[in-house]
Design a protein around this nucleic acid. Structure first.
Length: 415
RNA sequence: CGGGGCAUGGCGCAGUUGGUAGCGCGCACGCUUCGGGUGCGUGAGGUCGUGAGUUCAAGUCUCACUGCCCCGACCA
């Protein structure tokens, strides 16, 4: 991609009102654009990151047997009356032309349970794992921190259906591992912890995956020995001790909830009379679990964790482009070299952003730091017939030939 | 929903005791420069968040509302 053609232009000044690092850098670098509080457009750079995060999540969900579907965002209110969730305050309400009461989906139990009911009758149909990556609407009282808490957001939500508790428990563990893989792969695994939270009415515990960052809005209590944490809600109950090793040496940390896994027991199955016939011909309720990850929130968290004062430092798995090629000179001869390098990289299958703008060297260097692509390549009069390579997270400069560059880049990304 | 702050060209800001709006960046054109936000010149661009009120006169004072940011509460 030629940066001269990229929509839209990077700003020299960060947005005045934003405090959180993710909002500042993502808005200034033109990854996202705010339409209103908690509602964002993903611009070309940001959309590429979002799609990469989405693909990692999809791969891990498929690996644990998930089948991808896509459900509507527009739901009939009557289904929420059945589950007694029609009064929850995050629901957006609206009406159809004929006056039918509708809501915008904040989660999809009310849609997926009636759906599954049409297609499941026997124990032979279980277990079943369905997921989607789809938009959610939550009328949050206070949207905040850029894309960390928004009112419209893309979420991966998986729902599992089981014949009994034992089968559910097995899958619940498998999902925990899948989630660990996801957070590791997107570059926040080191600071993301399984956290015990209260299970609400249906179960003793649910679990959250909490990423430790000052930008976080939750407080968790971390046991550094067991690498697990408990949420603030549980702190009284647990009497300040780790649920695993009973240690009282817990550290209070601010954290952002990047994912949750939740035992639903038979709450929703009961509401819609979702049952199956077991081997003895008996009708039994289906045991459910649900598992969510907010994609935008993950993206914002990745920025909070992987950035410095100059901008973002994208992990190589989710970077919008793999190499940032900077032309620091407009002399025809130098430009010809840059064009040649751009072509060669693309032919090797490298995703490359080529800064061919007629800007000064300083502007391009600053912008490159802000955008945060892991590998920066520079061609200028100074580099002669070589190309300078620098990693975003390292100050070391290397002067290499085109072939060496191609080799280094393709090896780094395992292309 | 409680508390605090803010609202003036696309972005960031200034605007004194009320007298009808300026600066920087960006943008357009010309030249210049090219390794950390080059330099110079010319130009376009704003009914000052909305609505009332006070006044001869409101960006400025008063009231109400709306939006945005932060803290808190909330977050199946």
């Amino acid at each position: 991609m030629r940066q001269s053609q990229l929509f839209s232009k990077i700003s020299k000044t960060p947005p005045r009102e934003e405090i959180s690092r993710n909002a500042k850098f993502l808005v200034q670098g033109r990854f996202i654009d705010k339409l209103m509080a908690g509602v964002y457009t993903y611009l070309p750079l940001g959309f590429k990151v979002l799609k990469k995060i989405e693909q990692i999540i999809r791969e891990e969900m498929n690996a644990v047997g998930g089948q991808e579907i896509y459900m509507p965002a527009l739901h009939p209110l009557e289904n929420y009356i059945k589950t007694k969730r029609d009064k929850i305050d995050v629901l957006f309400h609206l009406k159809s032309a004929s006056g039918k009461k509708l809501v915008l989906g904040q989660s999809h139990e009310e849609v997926i349970v009636p759906l599954v009911k049409k297609h499941i009758g026997s124990y032979k149909d279980l277990p079943l794992y369905l997921y989607q990556i789809q938009v959610k609407f939550r009328n949050e009282l206070r949207a905040k921190s850029g894309i960390l808490r928004s009112r419209e957001f893309i979420m991966k939500d998986l729902y599992s259906f089981h014949k009994d508790e034992a089968d559910f428990e097995k899958y619940y563990t498998a999902i925990q591992n899948a989630y660990r893989n996801i957070f590791r792969r997107v570059g926040i695994g080191e600071v993301t912890y399984l956290t015990f939270a209260s299970g609400g009415t249906f179960s003793k515990y649910s679990h959250e995956f909490q990423t430790i960052t000052p930008a976080g809005e939750d407080k968790i209590y971390l046991c550094e020995k067991c690498k697990i944490a408990i949420n603030k809600e549980l702190i009284e109950e647990a009497k300040y001790s780790c649920l695993q090793c009973k240690s009282k040496n817990l550290k209070e940390k601010k954290a952002i909830e990047v994912g949750n896994i939740f035992p639903l027991k038979t709450k929703f199955s009961d509401a819609f009379d979702l049952k199956y016939i077991d081997q003895s011909g008996q009708k039994k309720p289906i045991v459910m679990g649900c598992y969510g990850i907010g994609l935008g929130r993950v993206m914002g968290t990745v920025v909070e964790i992987n950035s410095d004062q100059n901008g973002i430092i994208w992990p190589k798995t989710v970077t919008p482009y793999q190499a940032h090629l900077l032309l620091l000179d407009s002399h025809p001869k130098v430009k010809k070299e840059a064009e040649k390098t751009y072509d060669s990289l693309q032919k090797q299958g490298v995703q490359v952003l080529y800064d061919d703008r007629l800007e000064s060297a300083g502007v391009k260097l600053k912008d490159a730091d802000l955008i945060g692509i892991p590998i920066r390549l520079i061609i200028s009069e100074k580099t002669k017939d070589k190309i300078e390579l620098k990693f975003r997270n390292n100050e070391k400069l290397q002067l290499l030939s085109l072939n060496e560059i191609l080799k280094t880049v393709t090896e780094y990304y395992q292309l």
